[in-house]
Each structure stands twice: as structure tokens, then as C-alpha cells.
Amino acid sequence: MNVYLYILVMAVVTYLIRMLPLTLIRRRIENRFVKSFLYYVPYACLMAMTFPAVFYAAEEHFVAAVAGVVVAMLLALRGKGLMTVAVAASVTVFAVSLIQGL
């Protein structure tokens, strides 16, 4: 299937999600379940996409990916910023895969 068709569908759905509440709804969401559900969605979604996929993201370098995740988690726990954590994870994967290749 054409990639641009996929992109168009994604763009339309995403835009409607942003646009409809902004233009149509004037009340606040009161339902506690819906509010709670929406609050948890980003965290659930990011973690479901990350694990276990991240362990295979560096292709055959499984151990390197695990090391990258450990470093990312430790730095994130210590409150480091997004970029620091992301770059450190990448550098770790690179370094460990180099060492493994020796």
C-alpha cells in the first residue's frame, strides 16, 4: 500500500482528535473513569511500545541493548533530562557492541 495513504490517514485521525474537542465541546470531563483512563494512557502506551522491543532494536546486539536500557533507567531515576538519557543509552549500546565485536 502507498506510504502516503498511511500518512494521510494518520494525519486526519490525529487532527480530528485534536480539533473536535477544541471546537465542539465546551464542558469539562467529569467522569472519573474516563479522566483516569486518559491520564494513564501515555505511560501505558510508551512502555508497551518500549518493552520488550527495545531489546531487539540494536538488531543482533541484545546484550548491548540491555546495557543501554539499564543505563537509561539509572539516569532517568536520577532525574536526568530526556536528551541526556537518550544519548547515554545510545552511546552505551554503541560502546558495548564495539567491545563485543572485538
Partner: peptide, 30 residues
């Protein structure tokens, strides 16, 4: 290949600080 892990690192960096403070978010993430 190493940079492919970057985006995941960012996702981890978004979730972990919130999960550290909120047991509820931690449970949902797990």
C-alpha cells in the same frame, strides 16, 4: 543501530520520573 535505541531511551526518560513519584503510574507501566 545504536541511535535506533535513542527514542526508546527518551520514552524511558518520560515515564520513569513519573513512575518514581507515583506508585499508580508505576503499576500501570509494569
Amino acid at each position: 543501530v545504536a541511535m535506533n535505541v535513542m527514542l526508546y531511551g527518551m520514552f524511558i526518560a518520560i515515564v520513569i520520573p513519573v513512575a518514581k513519584k507515583s506508585k499508580e503510574v508505576l503499576m500501570v507501566a509494569c
